[in-house]
Design a protein around this nucleic acid. Structure first.
Lengths: 259, 259
DNA sequence: GAGCAGTTTTGAACGCGTTCGAAACTGTGG
DNA sequence: CCACAGTTTCGAACGCGTTCAAAACTGCTC
C-alpha cells in the first residue's frame, strides 16, 4: 500500500478554505469522519503528486492508486480533476496573506509595503511555479470555477483584496488624496497582483528573476502615480479612471456595484 | 531607435526538422497540390464544425469523418487539435486589419480612429465569440504556440501592431509629444486590444454590449492620457513608463530588445 | 511494365479523464 | 438478528486526443 502517506491529520489550518472547499469539491456535506479522512487523503496525495510530476502528468489513476482508493472513489469526492486544484489555491492565498503581514510589520512606506506584499506572493508561489503554469490554462477558462474572476473564487479573492487594504492602511499616505480613489485602491492593487501573476506564469528565467525585477520597478511607479493624482491637471483623468474601474472592473470581479 | 516593422526577426526557415517547424503547423512543406487540397479541406471542415458545435464538442473523429478522411490523416497535417485554430487565428487577424483600415479612412481624430480599430475587432470576432472563449484556455497556456505572446504568433501579432501604427500615423496628434513615447505606442495599443479581448472573452452580455461600452469609455481616456504626457509634471512618470515598457513588456512580446 | 524511394493515408490501439451500475459498508428501527 | 435506506467504494466501460506500423499511392528510372 501507500508507504509515505502524508500526515493527513495535520489539517489544523484555520479555515483556509472553509466555504469554498465545499463548493469546489462537487459534494454536499461530509457525513462521517471516515469520509472526511478519505477526502483529505485524496487531496493531499494529489497535491504531492502534482508537485512531484506536474499537473498533467499526474493521472487520476495514479492519484487513486497512490492514495489506495479506486478512481471512482476519487471522483466521488472531486467531481473533476481540476477541483483538486481549488484546495491548493485556497491554501496558497491564506499562506500568502499570513506571510505578507508578517513581513510588512514595521514598514510604513507605501511603495515598500506594496513591494513586500508582491514579493511575498512570488516567494509563496515559487515552489509551484512549474505546475502552476500548467493549470493556468484551466484558470483562464471563463466558464471554469477556477477563474480568478469566478464566483467560486470569491473567498480567496476577498482575502487577497483585504490584504491590499491592509497594505494601504498601514501606510503613511500623502494627505489630501481623493477619498473615493483610495476606496478603490485595494481592488486595483489586486489587479496589479493579477498582472504580476500573468507575467510570472510566462516567466522562464531562473528563480523568476525577471518578474522580481518587474515588481521592483513597477511598485515605485504605482506609488508615484497615486501621489500625482493630487494635482489639479489630474482631476479629469482621475475621475475617468474611477468611473472606468467602478463601472467595468469591479462588477466583473464580483463587487456587485449596486447603483 | 529603429523600430521599423518586424524586420528584426525574419526567419523564414530555421533548422528543418526543428521543433519550431513541427509546432508551426504540424508539417513542413506542401509537396503536391493534392496534399495542399487535403490540408485545406480538413482545415475548412474543422472551422465549420467549430462554429456549428463549439471547439470542445467537435471531435477529431468527427472532423475526419466529415472531411472524408481518416483521423490519422488529419494528424498528418495538424499534429494536434489546437493547431487547427492557428489558421483561424491568422485569418481573423488579416480580416480585422483590412476592415479596420476601411473604416478608419477619412477619420483624423486619434481617439476615434482607435475606437474604430477596436470596435472593428469586436465585429470581426463576433461570430466566434462562443467558441473563442472555449479555446481561450489553450491560448493561455504559456507553453502553447497559440499564446498571443509566443513566437509562432509573431506574424499575426506584427500585423496587428502594424495596424495600430497606422492608427497613429493617420491621426493629427498634438505636437511636442515625446517622440520615444510615440514610438512605443503601437505595441502599447496592441496591449490595449489584448485587454479588450480578455474582457470580451469573459463578457456574457448580449452582443458583448458591455465590452463595447468598455471600448467607448476607455479610448477617449487613452487619448487624454497620451495628451497629458506633454506636461512637465509628467516627465518623470513618463520616463518610468517608457523604461518599464521597453525593459519588461516589449521583450516578452517578441521584440528582441537586447541590451 | 517493374522496381524503388518518398509521400500520403489508414485504422487499430494506447492512455487519459470521466461515467455508471452495482456491490459493500454503515447505522437505525423492528 | 434481520430488513432497509443511505452512504461510500469499486472497477469495467465510454469517448476522447493522440500514436504508429503498415498499407496505398505517387513520380521516377531502367
Amino acid at each position: 500500500m501507500s508507504d509515505g502517506v502524508e500526515s493527513a491529520s495535520d489539517r489544523n489550518e484555520p479555515e483556509s478554505g472553509g466555504p469554498a472547499a465545499e463548493l469546489a469539491g462537487g459534494r454536499a456535506q461530509p457525513k462521517t469522519d471516515k469520509s472526511e479522512a478519505t477526502r483529505a487523503l485524496i487531496l493531499e496525495t494529489a497535491m504531492r503528486l502534482f508537485q512531484e510530476r506536474g499537473y498533467e502528468k499526474t493521472t487520476m489513476r495514479a492519484i487513486a492508486a497512490e492514495a489506495g482508493v479506486s478512481v471512482g472513489n476519487a471522483y466521488y469526492y472531486f467531481s473533476a480533476k481540476e477541483f483538486l486544484i481549488q484546495g491548493f489555491y485556497d491554501r496558497m492565498t491564506y499562506d500568502h496573506a499570513a506571510d505578507a503581514r508578517r513581513r510588512m510589520a514595521g514598514t510604513k512606506d507605501f511603495a515598500e509595503r506594496l513591494e513586500i506584499a508582491l514579493v511575498s506572493w512570488l516567494d509563496t508561489a515559487a515552489p509551484y511555479h512549474e505546475f502552476a503554469a500548467q493549470f493556468f490554462r484551466t484558470a483562464a477558462d471563463p466558464t471554469s470555477s477556477l477563474s480568478p474572476f469566478s464566483n467560486e473564487s470569491h473567498p480567496a479573492r476577498a482575502t487577497a483584496v483585504e490584504l491590499f487594504r491592509e497594505v494601504l492602511q498601514g501606510s503613511e499616505l500623502a494627505p489630501k488624496l481623493d477619498a473615493e480613489l483610495v476606496e478603490l485602491l485595494p481592488d486595483v492593487l489586486w489587479l496589479h497582483l493579477m498582472v504580476v501573476v500573468l507575467y510570472w506564469v510566462f516567466d522562464r528565467t531562473d528563480d523568476t528573476e525577471r518578474t522580481r525585477e518587474f515588481v521592483r520597478r513597477s511598485t515605485p511607479m504605482a506609488a508615484r502615480l497615486i501621489n500625482l493624482s493630487r494635482y489639479r491637471i489630474f482631476r479629469p483623468i482621475v475621475r475617468d479612471a474611477k468611473g472606468l474601474i467602478q463601472d467595468f472592473i469591479l462588477p466583473t470581479i464580483g463587487k456587485t456595484a449596486v447603483k
